[in-house]
Each structure stands twice: as structure tokens, then as C-alpha cells.
Amino acid sequence: MRVNAKSQKPKTPKGFIGPIGFDLPSIMPIVFAIIVFFSAVSYSYTTVNEKNNVLDSIESSIKIADILKGNSYLFFDATDSGAKNKFASNCEKAVNIAQSKNINFAATFVKLDSSSSIEWLIENKESEIDSCTTADGKHLCWCGFSPKKFDSNLSKQFWSISFPVTVDVKPPGSGPEDIYPQSYLRKIIVVVWK
């Protein structure tokens, strides 16, 4: 008796498309649901992280600006690069805060209606106040870290804040009895980045 090899195979029903063929209609919504869920989780995670970063930056910039400006009155004594400069002592405190929060910042002074580029001022450690450099070349009107380069991608992650302050400057060459003869109403600009 001849054995038909074909007839020995299990008979598959018509339209059978594999072991999971009947489950495909159920699997597809499940897979789709999983994709949707993980996309939502990923999106939420990214969004919350970004917002936390922004909030953190805002909070840090407020804190640093608050420390730097003090009571909104600052003075610089270009005849003495030491302890007489209130801004320098405020700056030290601000640097400590920034380090503890693991953020970078830079701060300088600009005119109220300044048209100067903040990027340029910060890159070049400039301020819009005269007599800000001591005889030994120390910058008195500058605080923080200078970013290597303000490229367009980097600047998107920057957060800046400004507050008006009054700055009195005792220029180099002033005598000890001289009052602070130069007074400026300026904005202190604080730029914060991670």
C-alpha cells in the first residue's frame, strides 16, 4: 500500500496564516497600545525633564541675581581690589551657590537701554561701566564663568534675568578722602546655563 506523504501532513484549515494567525487581530491593538503608552511615557519624561530644567534655571538665576545685587546698591573701588568691593564678596557667594547647584553663570552690568549684545559683553568680560578694572588688571564689574562660545545651539539653553541697580565707582587715582564720584543706574544681567 502506497503511503501518500501529503496526506500524512496535518490538514491546515483554509486561510491559516501561521501559529498566531488567529491572534493577529488581538495582537495588533495590543502592540499599538504598547507603542502609544511608551511614546506617551517618553514624551512626558522629556517634557517634565525640560520643564524642570527651565524651572531650575529660573530659580537659580533669581537666587544668583538676588545675591549679586544685594540691596540694589553696589560700589567698586578701583583703587583697591580687595575687600572694599561689595560686588566681589557678593560674587564669591554667588559662585558657591552656582557650584552647589551644578550650574554656570555669568553676570555683568549694562545700561538700562543698552543696545550691546549680552553675548559679546559676557564673552569679552565687558561691562558698561567705566573704571571697572584695577591697576593690576582685575575685573571688578564681572562675575561668573565665561562660556567658551555663544553658538546658536548653546544659547537656546541659556536663561537670563536682569535687575536695575545703582553702582558707585571710585576710579583709579582717587584719593582716600574722595567720595565715590561716579554713580550709575544700570541693569545687572545674569545669564545662567547648565
Binding site: K69, N71, S72, Y73, F163, V165, S183, L185
Partner: peptide, 12 residues
């Protein structure tokens, strides 16, 4: 800050 700065401002 603005008010304090104005309080301290003397002359330009």
C-alpha cells in the same frame, strides 16, 4: 530693585 536703585541713585 528698581525702587532701591532709585533710592540709592545720586547723580550721573
Amino acid at each position: 530693585s528698581l525702587m532701591n536703585a532709585l533710592l540709592h541713585a545720586k547723580y550721573e
